[in-house]
Write a protein that binds this DNA or RNA. Structure first.
Lengths: 185, 185
DNA sequence: GGACCTATTTATAATTG
DNA sequence: TCAATTATAAATAGGTC
């Protein structure tokens, strides 16, 4: 009963949306769009995908296909590639949108840890069950096998650096980190 | 001059592509698609986006908009919201596809560190220049301000855990970590 | 492998309820 | 805010070169 204006999609310029409401709506829609695309990519090509989004307004969102640790087990445990028509996965990508209610930093760390777990565990798990595997997943072994002392050393230094960074941050803000122990004020 | 068969797009089932060549082609196309969508999301809504993809076959790919540290500075340094038609960003998302030639784990860590840097630095940087900012970016302050002692403590524990994990991994593999120092064999 | 080509399917901007 | 609707713009599967 109201004036019927133009509906339908308009061409969009790649620029920041000024109107706050439109920006929020677009954020929700497109975040879901990106996650859905990422899920399709993961399922169709067998890739591992992890996404973190800091939204303009509230808590961060993350996406991982499907769950890093489970994915490792699935890949390693499969004795043959999944059948071409594995059912029921389609409608489930929504469940993987991990909308976290916790703080930004903590959410970040969950993802970081998942990713590090992935890198650290894949090699040994692959080795364990490798005899049972078809050659489909040989692509994983190459990059992982290359993880040698140099890499381990760099990893260690990185973590030290991160740790120091956190330590300094909190010290500056009065939380305090002394003698390996943390204390308030 | 050849038999013109059906072109155009066919409907696609959400399942792993069995044919290896098709899978590779689809991976490339869709990876670019996801990254482009992510870039659009970031530009249009002002969100920070980070993506990691472990492809089935070779090195990992990552996407970040546009660069985490630069992005922080840009956001914080702006005295007013970006103009609605900031030019030249459109064709540049390709440049942001960081195809890394380094090892999986190292690539992971780059991203992790960027993300942690983001979380740790944003708060203080925002505070410093906050007086000059328009209210457009108030959405950032909320979640960041909530980072208190509890969060800092959790962060510290997480890093400790990650560090321990790395230590154990390398010890198992003969690299060794003793008395705070790393050594080969 | 990559760049281009189309027929289609999909994603989605604006609007309505 | 949140779910539909719908007109269109975009993405892309299969093909060609």
């Amino acid at each position: 009963m109201s004036t019927r204006l133009i509906k339908g999609r308009k061409s969009v310029r790649l620029a920041k949306i000024e109107n706050q409401n439109n920006r929020q709506v677009t954020f929700s829609k497109r975040r879901n769009g990106v996650f859905k695309k990422a899920n399709e990519l993961a399922v169709m090509t067998g890739a591992e995908v992890g996404i973190i989004v800091f939204p303009p307004g509230s808590k961060p969102y993350s996406f991982g296909h499907p769950n890093v640790n489970e994915t490792i087990d699935k890949y390693v445990g499969e004795e043959r590639p999944p059948s071409p028509s594995s059912p029921g996965i389609d409608g489930k990508y929504v469940q993987m949108f991990q909308k976290t209610n916790s703080i930004t930093l903590n959410t970040q760390l969950n993802t970081l840890q998942d990713q590090l777990d992935f890198a650290l565990n894949l090699k040994s798990k692959l080795k364990e069950k490798n005899k049972n595997l078809e050659s489909q997943q040989d692509w994983f072994k190459g990059p992982i096998e290359r993880m040698n002392y140099t890499e381990a050393s760099m990893l260690k230094e990185r973590l030290e650096h991160l740790h120091l960074k956190v330590k300094n941050y909190d010290t500056e803000h009065g939380y305090g980190y002394e003698n390996g122990k943390w204390k308030a004020e």
